[in-house]
Nucleic acid binder design. Sequence first.
DNA 1: TGCCGATGAACAAACGATTGCGCTAGCCTA
DNA 2: TAGGCTAGCGCAATCGTTTGTTCATCGGCA
Lengths: 349, 349
Amino acid sequence: MPVTLKELAARANVHPSTISRVANNDPGLRIATGTRARIEALLRETGYQPNGIARGLKMRQTNVLAVVIPDVTNPFFAALFRGVEDAAAPRGFNVLLCNTDGLPERQRSHLQSLQARRVDGVIIASSFLKDPSVRDLRRQQGPYVLVNRFSDEGEDPFVGSDDLLGGQLATAHLIELGHTRVGHLAGKSTVSTGMLRRRGYLAAHTAAGLAADPDLIVEAGYTEESGSAAARRLFSLPEPPTAVFAVTDMVAIGAADVARQMGLRVPEDLAIIGYNDIPLASRVSPGLTTMHVPIHEFGSVAARLLLDQIESDEPTRRRVRFTPDLIVRESTVAGARSQRSARPRASAE
Amino acid sequence: MPVTLKELAARANVHPSTISRVANNDPGLRIATGTRARIEALLRETGYQPNGIARGLKMRQTNVLAVVIPDVTNPFFAALFRGVEDAAAPRGFNVLLCNTDGLPERQRSHLQSLQARRVDGVIIASSFLKDPSVRDLRRQQGPYVLVNRFSDEGEDPFVGSDDLLGGQLATAHLIELGHTRVGHLAGKSTVSTGMLRRRGYLAAHTAAGLAADPDLIVEAGYTEESGSAAARRLFSLPEPPTAVFAVTDMVAIGAADVARQMGLRVPEDLAIIGYNDIPLASRVSPGLTTMHVPIHEFGSVAARLLLDQIESDEPTRRRVRFTPDLIVRESTVAGARSQRSARPRASAE
DNA sequence: TGCCGATGAACAAACGATTGCGCTAGCCTA
DNA sequence: TAGGCTAGCGCAATCGTTTGTTCATCGGCA
C-alpha cells in the first residue's frame, strides 16, 4: 500500500495539508526552511506519489483521454493512436484505447463506461453520419473531437481529410490515365468518408464529361475481407471496369488480391488506387497508388484540440481538414517510382 | 455536470446511502416497495451513473488495466493489445495503452504514472532481462504480468512462446533444406526473446553437427529499419550466408527488402525465416516462412491471469508458454503452399 | 508595555461514493 | 401494557487530496 499524506504528516509532525503544499510546490507558501527541508527529505525518502484517484476526485480532473476506434489492428488506427499518445503523454495525460469493431452497440457501451470513469476527453474515430452516441457526447458537454469521420452536419470539433476532394483527385488520376470505365469500391453511405469519397468519385466523372455507370459502384465496407468480397462482384460484371478507386487502402489490398486470383494483371488489366497511404501501401506488390493523408497528425492534432479545450475549459468548434495528396505507385502506373506530389496542407475553420 | 447521489437523495427524500444501495442492488437490502419504486424511477429518469472516481477511491479499485509495449504501430503489439482488451472489456475493465519505443526511461515514467493512477494491473511487453522497472513492479506488489519477454530469472507471471525451441525449430528448418551457412539476424542480448532465440539457433547447429560461424550472427534489433541495416552488413560478408533466421518478422521483412535491393533472389539465393507470424507475413511477396505464435491469445491469457489476480486478491506465479509452430511459405521453399503444421499448444507451470 | 503585522502551520470542508451500525416506529406476544 | 423483534431507513466514518481560513506566536515599533 503506497504511503499517504496522513502517514507522512505523522512522521514529520505536521499537518497533511502542509505536506501537500510542499509536494505541490505551492507558490504562495510561507514555510520555515527547516520544516521544508524535513518534509522534502521525507518525500524523497519515501518516493511519495499522490494518489491520482483522490486527487482526481478533488480536482475534478483525471488526466485521462480516451480514443475510440474500430480496430487497432488496422494500421490506420494504430498510427492514429500513436499520434494521440505522442501529443498527450508530454502533457501528463494517459490514454485509454477502446475498440468497437464498428458495432454501434459496443461504441455506446464504451462511451458510457468512459463517462462513468470521468475521462477528461474523448477522441472518436468510429462515428456514423447519424450517430446517437455522438449526440450523447454533445449533450454531455465533456470535451470530444471527431477524427477522420464526422457526424450529422458536421457541427463537432473535427480533424480529418478533405474526402470530397480526395475522392475526386483519386478518380481523376484514373481518368487521366485514359480509363473510361472506372469502378468504385465504396465505403458505407452511413459514414462520412464513404459518402464524400463517393461524391468525389462522381464529381470527377462530371468534371471529365463522363457518365458514371451506377453498376460500377459497389459498397465494400472497410476491411480487407469485405473489400475482396465486393471486388469479386465488381470484377465479375459483364462489362468490368479497367480501373477502381477503393475507399481505403485495406479495401484496395483486398481487391488486388482478388484481381490476382482472377488472373488480372495490375496495373495492365486493372489499375487500383486506395486512400490513406498506410505503411502497408508501399510494401505490397505492386506498390499501391493512394491518397496520402497525415495519419499520425490526425491523432496529434486531435489530441491538442482536446487538451486545449480541457485546459481552457471552453469548448471549441474548430475543424481541421488536411488536403490529401496523390501518391503514384505501380498499381496504376507500371514502373512508377513512388513519390509524393506535395506536402499535405491543412485548412482550418 | 452529472447527477450525484446527494442530489438524487434530495429529490427522493431519502438518504444518499439508500439510493446507493438501490442502485447497486444490495442483496441484503430491506426496503419498502414504494420507496424502491420511487428511487428506481428516479434512477432511470436521470440515467444516474455512479462517479467512477469517487467509487474508485472508496473501493480501492479503478477497473483499469494498462498495457505497456514498445509500439502499437507494430502489428504484433496491436494484435496483442486486442487480445487484452477482448478479455478485459467483458469483465468491466478499460485498458490504458502506453508506448515506450523501447526506451527504458519512457517505460519508467509510464510505469510511475500508472502507479500514481492506481491502475489495477499492468501488462508489460517491453521488459529487458535486467530491468529496474520490473523490479519496481515486483516491489510495489500490484498485480502484473510479463508478456512475450520475461525478465531476470523469470520469476514473474509470464505469457509467451518457447523461444529457445522456436529458435531451434526455425534454424533446423533451414538446415534441413540443405543450408550449411545459416545467418542469424539476432535480437538484443538484453532481451529474453533475443537471447533465447539465439541460443536456439546455436542449439540447432549443435544438434546437426554443424559449427556455427560467429560472424554470421548480427544483432539487428526489432524494427524493420534496424533489420535492413543489419542485413546489409550480413549480406556484404566475404562469405555471406545462404539462409537467415531473423528474430522477428519485421526484421525478416527488412532483410528481404535489402536482399531484393542487392539483387538476391528469395528463396533461391537466400532463404529467410522470421518469427511471430504477424498478418503481414503472409502478405509480403514472397510469403514469409515463420514461427507461428498465437499473438491474440498472448494478450487474452495475460489479461485473464491479471484479472484473476485482481479478483482473488492473491498474486500468481503462473507462467504460460506456447509452443511455436513452423509455417512454411515461399521465402524458404519456392512454390510452397503455406500451411500450419499443427495447432499451437500451451504449457503452463 | 501594548499593539500590529508577518510568519508558519493547523483546521476543516469539500469531492462522491460505500457500508457497518444505530435508531425509530409498528406489531406481536406474554 | 410492557418488552422484544423486525422492517425501513438514516447516520457518520472513510477513502486521500486540495485549499480557503483561522490561529498562535513572535518581533518590531511606538
